[in-house]
Amino acid sequence: MMLDRPVGQEPIRFHAPHMPPSTYDAVASALGSKHLRAGGRFSRKARALVGAHVGHDRVFLTNSCTSALEVAALALDLGPEDEIIVPSFTFCATATAFARKGARIVLADIDPNTMMVSAETIAARITNRTRAVVVVHYGGAAARMDGITALCAHHGIAVVEDAAQAFGSKQTGRAVGTAGLFAAYSFHETKIISSGHGGALVVNSDKPVLRERVEELLARGTNYPAFARREVSHYEWTSVSSSFEMPDLNAALLYGQLKHTREILFKSRAIWAFYEKRLNRLPVTILRPDEATQTNGYSFAFLCADRSCARRILEKSEQLGLGLQSHYKPLHLSRFAGQILAGHCPAASDSWERLIRLPVHMDLCAEDAGRICDFLTSELG
């Protein structure tokens, strides 16, 4: 039966970027400065705020989270003989950033209760060619990093955190994105803090050589940073790289939102808690953060009992304009899977089509959140 949205009710958007007044002020100031490229005043200000969140200043703004991961891959100096373990359930950019270096991508299965890798699923994929493990923190929650970092340290394997969805989240009191050697945040329009399109690379090592390597890569593969500090008399080409930095205009947009991080996190977490309270008795598996993690509230998601139930809920939601969404297909089921070491990922295969995500954003009002919960209660209760 075809359902119609009630007359006068606007469709609920799954996501809407937040634009506080300070955002407009910062962008106008950046335009007035006529310094729109990377490295300007707002780049420094935004970097300082991200640095305050992670607890150190080894933060570099990039034009995307994908670029941040690519810089990490370049800094690790990966090659065709190296294997990189990546979760099968993730956006393709997680793997692409390392595949572009020629590394062999090995896909790991997930824990369906979290949709994230664990120490156990990673251990099943480690070989003597494994150089790095990429951990994706899904939905604003976090993978259990203590077991993963201990496992990787034992094998001498680097850990890279894809924390695209996790800016503002904490685990054991620390910012998510501070446990691995590298971490990447996303500030894409769809994320909780946005610069329209952007990201950040976090280097969680105080070794000067690693910081200098990242600086050269961000300078398009030159030693220009050393030249700017008057450490050399000229600058020159030092390695293969690309244009990865965030322009100052985007940094101004980012800075305007970072100043409101506290209120954005407060509302996102409040929406998450509202959903959890209203829906916790339904016969679904809610993706909850573990007891050590404080989520940023970026995503509220659950698994239906089966695929047909999820399809029914999504179809009816679309007809009613309620904004519910599924998510990406696991990489081992993609058309490109034949080009990588896909392996067998039964948990990801079983769970991805049962996944449903609810809208969480600053423009979502209590009435709309209530409509969503009433719909789900009537369909699943």
Rank of each mutant, 00 (worst) to 15 (best):
S242T: 02
M19F: 14
H137I: 13
I340M: 15
A150L: 07
F244T: 11
L303H: 10
C345L: 02
T178C: 12
C92H: 05
L36M: 09
T114V: 11
W237H: 13
W272P: 01
P20D: 08
M116L: 00
F60P: 02
V360C: 12
V176R: 04
R357I: 06
T178G: 10
I12R: 05
E120S: 15
G79F: 04
S268K: 02
L322V: 09
I157T: 07
F375G: 10
R312F: 06
G102W: 04
G321M: 11
R129N: 13
A38K: 07
A251N: 15
P112L: 11
S317Q: 08
R5Y: 00
T114K: 05
A337L: 06
V160Q: 05
T238H: 01
P247V: 07
P6H: 06
S186W: 02
Y328S: 11
C152S: 10
A95P: 04
A99S: 10
A95K: 03
V7Q: 07
G321D: 08
L181C: 09
G343Y: 09
W272T: 00
A108T: 03
I286W: 10
C309P: 00
L331A: 06
P20T: 12
L324E: 07
V159G: 06
I372W: 01
P87K: 14
G338K: 10
S64T: 05
P80R: 02
L253R: 14
L181P: 01
T62E: 04
C92Q: 11
F274I: 07
D290F: 14
Y328K: 09
G102A: 02
R5H: 03
P11L: 10
P346Q: 14
A93I: 09
E318V: 00
A95M: 13
P283C: 13
K267L: 14
E231H: 10
V203Q: 14
G338V: 09
S334R: 04
E189C: 00
A75G: 02
L376R: 11
C304V: 00
K207H: 11
A95Y: 05
L358H: 03
A366R: 15
A200V: 09
G297V: 09
G221L: 00
E81G: 15
V202C: 13
A219W: 02
G79I: 12
A95L: 12
L181T: 05
D306K: 01
E216T: 06
I271L: 12
L358V: 13
E215A: 15
F182N: 11
L322Q: 08
P6N: 10
P283N: 10
G199P: 10
F60S: 04
R307T: 15
A301L: 05
G39I: 15
G199H: 13
N113D: 15
E161N: 12
V50C: 06
I110K: 03
P225W: 14
V7P: 04
V202N: 06
K207S: 09
L320P: 03
A226W: 01
W352K: 04
A72L: 05
H361E: 05
A184M: 07
K259W: 07
L78E: 01
F42S: 01
K101S: 13
I84H: 00
P289V: 12
K329N: 13
A179W: 05
F60W: 12
L69N: 00
R100W: 00
H332A: 08
G147A: 09
S195D: 09
F42H: 07
G156V: 11
P21W: 04
R129P: 03
G370L: 04
